[in-house]
Design a binder for these strands. Structure first.
Lengths: 116, 116
DNA sequence: CAGCATCCCCACTGATACTG
DNA sequence: CAGTATCAGTGGGGATGCTG
């Protein structure tokens, strides 16, 4: 099932957010990504980026400098995730709205009462 | 982050597929859902449906008959997931296509060579 | 038919410390 | 700066058997 395939690739706790940040910013260093995701650990960020790289969504570029610099950006395939991430984000916003709008709940319940 | 919120709700191995089947069919009995997802165990189907119910995406209707009959359908909120599930499915199809098209890989790599 | 109960595993996630 | 290494915990997910 295609839905399952996609979820296997961008699922999990962090990948969606990483992709969102990269779509937003285009190209980010490891530390910049980390700064944009204060709750993720270095370890998890590394693991998730490696996984995204394996699946061909992200490119990792190492600049042989001191101090080391590594930049991440989306591949062409990775960029095709834009509409997916967008819809995930939009629905997240809608959901938060819904939860904080108790006034309309009664009307909603009446709708739900429809029979199959 | 809204992206993370959505993934917490419809993430995991099965929820996306369940939602897809319900969007497609409108209303399904437990056994009908199970038949459409041969790999899921009864236990997991039950657990995932309960979770979707808790989050207000699915309505569970029990018909007091013998043998028992339980039907599942989306709430109004659940139906708002249509564009999300759609985009997940479309990208899944695109991804499968990409993997089975080795001819275009060279061109793709050249694209990836662009600098940040 | 549509489940619940039970047992179990390991993959995901995390905290912490260390390093080229 | 951008990682590895190590250890540990939790819970998602699964197999199987039983039942109103």
């Amino acid at each position: 099932c295609p839905v399952e395939i996609t979820q296997e690739i961008i699922g999990g706790k962090w990948k969606g957010v990483i992709l969102y940040k990269l779509l937003e910013s285009g190209c980010l260093r490891f530390s910049e990504l980390k700064r944009r995701m204060p709750r993720i650990t270095q370890r998890m960020l590394t693991l998730q980026l490696r996984s995204l790289e394996e699946d061909g969504l992200v490119i990792r570029t190492i600049y042989p400098e001191v101090p080391p610099r590594v930049e991440y950006r989306l591949t062409v395939l990775g960029k095709t995730l834009q509409p997916v991430i967008d819809s995930l984000m939009k629905w997240g916003l809608l959901y938060e709205e819904t939860k904080s709008a108790p006034v309309s709940k009664k009307a909603a319940v009446q709708h739900e009462a429809e029979v199959c």
